[in-house]
């Protein structure tokens, strides 16, 4: 009743649909491009209103946004460092600068967290770079490893004037 060519087409459609369905089933829940994200938010928990000029020992209030899309549980350590124009930092090299503070966060895959940051700088500084580096705890080596992500904020720290 139905010739062989039509049967072959039906068979091809069935195979394609079947393979696609099975592939979808097996690949479901897998992360194709794992990544972690770090973001710096202003004192109102929004992008913007960042402080540019602060006084010595004035509390700088910011927020750090951390997002985990690595496909598994992550242990992040964020270092707040005080650098300057000449501080070298890139995806592979972390900044060689004094550490102001440290924040530790454990995040499951697909979750994010916004943590408050309060920092003080104790001496006047022109063109200071407030650097936030993302490090991760590696359970295999039981050490902290630089994860190649960082954010920065340029600020001028001035001494309060005595009137």
């Amino acid at each position: 009743m139905i010739d062989e060519e039509v049967k072959a087409v039906i068979l091809a459609i069935i195979i394609v649909v079947g393979v696609f369905s099975i592939a979808q089933l097996i690949a479901s829940g897998r992360v194709v491009e794992p990544f972690s994200a770090i973001g710096l938010l202003g004192p109102k928990m929004k992008i913007g209103d960042y402080p540019k000029n602060v006084l010595v020992n004035q509390t700088i209030n910011l927020y750090l946004f951390i997002d985990n899309h690595e496909g598994h549980l992550m242990y992040y350590v964020i270092y707040a460092k005080l650098g300057n124009r000449s501080t070298m930092i890139n995806e592979n090299v972390s900044a060689n600068a004094p550490i102001l503070d440290r924040y530790e966060v454990i995040l499951p895959h697909g979750e994010n967290i916004t943590i408050p940051v309060s920092l003080k700088i104790q001496k006047p500084y022109r063109n200071a770079r407030l650097i936030f580096e993302m490090w991760i705890y590696d359970p295999a080596s039981e050490t902290l490893r630089y994860h190649g992500r960082w954010v920065q904020l340029w600020i001028n720290v001035t001494a309060p004037t005595i009137s």
Binding site: H72, L73, Y75, V105, L107, P108, E111, Y137, P139
Partner: peptide, 22 residues
Amino acid sequence: YSKLVKAEEKGADVRDAAMKLQ
């Protein structure tokens, strides 16, 4: 945390445990 990572590799749902560690 290291133990939880291994548990997660074995299919464990570690969401609540991670929240407690946090």
